[in-house]
Design a protein around this nucleic acid. Structure first.
Lengths: 213, 213
DNA sequence: CGGCATCCACAGTGATACTG
DNA sequence: CAGTATCACTGTGGATGCCG
C-alpha cells in the first residue's frame, strides 16, 4: 500500500491498517488469540492466500502481529497480536457498532462464521444478575457451536460447545442475534426458524433491554 | 470497492468506509464542517480528482455525506456529513490516537495542513483552570493560522487567525505539537526552531501534564 | 473558477496452481 | 501446513479536457 504521505495521525494509522483485509485479520486475531495460518484463512472467506501472507508480513513489520513457533509436539507457526495490536480492540468494537445497522438488510450470499458473534456479544450484552450462579448458552448457527457464559457482570463468548448448557439456540445468525440483542421477540424469532432447547428465561438476564421471551 | 461479502458488522463498516481516501474525506468534513469540492481537494493533498468525486458519490449513497446547494450569492455545492457521518468522530479520534506514536519518526516529504491539528488538540488538551477568563493561542505552522481557545473546560481549535491572542507560536508542526502535548520542553522546542510571542505561562493551563515552560 | 469526466500507465488484488 | 509463483484483472494516481 502506498503511503498517504500526510503528517497526520489518522493518515499514519491508515498507512498501517488501511489496506484491504488488514483490519479483518486483526479481528480474527482478537477473537481467536494465537492462530495458525490455516485458521486465519478459514476465518477470512474470500481472501487470497498471497494476500494473507503479505498482510501478515506487513503487520509484523508494523509491530502489530508477531509470529511464534508453536510448542514442542505440533511444530507449526502461530500468529498473535502484540500489545500494540491488542490496543485496537475497542476501536474495532466501535467500528463494528457503527456498521451493525447494515446487518439488518437481507445480505444474501454473505458468508458467515459463528465466532464472528464473539465481539458483538461481549460489547452489547451484560449480566443483569451477577449474584446468581452463572449461566451458559450454546449457539448453533453456522460452522461451529459458540458458548456464551456470564461472569463478573459481563457476558463472554468463545468457540466450542457448552458443557451442560442452560439453553441451546439453533437457527440463522440474524434470528439468533436479533433475539439476543432484544431486537425481535421470541415469536418473531421462531417464525424466522429459530429453535430452542432449555430455559428461555435465562435470556432476560443478559438481553440489553426488556424483551419478551 | 468490492464488498467483503461477510455477515459481520466490522466487514460491513469496511465495505462503506474501507476504501482508499474514504476516512480521510470524513476527517476533512469533521474538521471543516460543510465544504466545497475544492476545499476538500486542498485538504487531501495527493488525491486524484476523479477519486474524490467517486468517493463523495459513494459516501452520499451510503448516507454518510449529503450535498447542499449553497445559499444565494455564491452558487456552489457544499458537502457535509449527515448525523450518521458525525457518529464517526470518536472513532476517528481513537484511530488517530493509535497512530500518534508514528508521527514521532522524521517522516520527511510528508505534506501538512494546519487544520489537521484540530482533532488532536480537542482530544488531548483540557483547560485546567476553567474559572479563569478564557485564553487564546494562535499557531502559525503551515498554510494558514489556527486559533486555540479554552471554553467550558475543554480546548477548541478552529482555522483562522486569533483576535488579540495571549500567545503566538510559530514553527514546525512537530515542535508546536510536541510543546503543546508536553512531549518536549520549551528549550527543546526552541532548538527545533520554535518561536513565541506573548505569555508562555498560558501553556501550562492546557498541557496534559506537568511540563516546563 | 468550481466540479467533475476521460484517458492512460501502473500498482494492487484475486483465483488458481504449485512446492518444501 | 504455510506459504510462493503466475497471471488476468481491477483500482489508483496523474494529466488533461470540458462545461456551466
Amino acid at each position: 500500500m502506498h503511503s498517504y504521505g500526510q503528517y497526520c495521525a489518522l493518515a499514519k494509522t491508515l498507512d498501517v491498517l488501511g489496506g484491504r483485509w488488514t483490519l479483518l485479520i486483526v479481528r480474527e486475531l482478537l477473537i481467536r488469540g494465537a492462530c495458525r495460518y490455516t485458521d486465519l484463512r478459514n476465518g477470512l472467506p474470500g481472501i487470497a492466500t498471497n494476500m494473507l501472507a503479505e498482510r501478515l508480513r506487513e503487520l509484523e513489520d508494523a509491530g502489530v502481529v508477531e509470529r511464534e513457533d508453536a510448542p514442542a509436539p505440533v511444530a507449526t507457526t502461530l500468529f498473535r497480536l502484540t500489545a500494540r495490536g491488542r490496543e485496537l480492540e475497542p476501536i474495532l468494537q466501535q467500528l463494528g457498532a457503527w456498521g451493525a445497522p447494515l446487518l439488518a438488510q437481507p445480505a444474501r450470499g454473505d458468508r458467515f462464521r459463528t465466532h464472528w458473534l464473539t465481539m458483538p456479544i461481549g460489547l452489547h450484552l451484560r449480566d443483569r444478575n451477577p449474584e446468581a450462579p452463572p449461566v451458559r448458552i450454546e449457539l448453533r448457527t453456522g460452522d461451529e457451536p459458540l458458548t456464551i457464559e456470564t461472569g463478573d457482570g459481563r457476558v463472554h463468548a468463545k468457540p466450542g460447545a457448552a458443557a451442560d448448557p442452560d439453553l441451546v439456540l439453533t437457527g440463522l445468525p440474524q434470528a439468533v442475534m436479533g433475539l439476543l440483542l432484544g431486537k425481535i421477540d421470541w415469536n418473531t424469532a421462531q417464525r424466522a426458524g429459530l429453535r430452542s432447547e432449555g430455559d428461555l428465561k435465562v435470556l432476560r438476564r443478559i438481553q440489553p433491554e426488556a424483551a419478551p421471551a
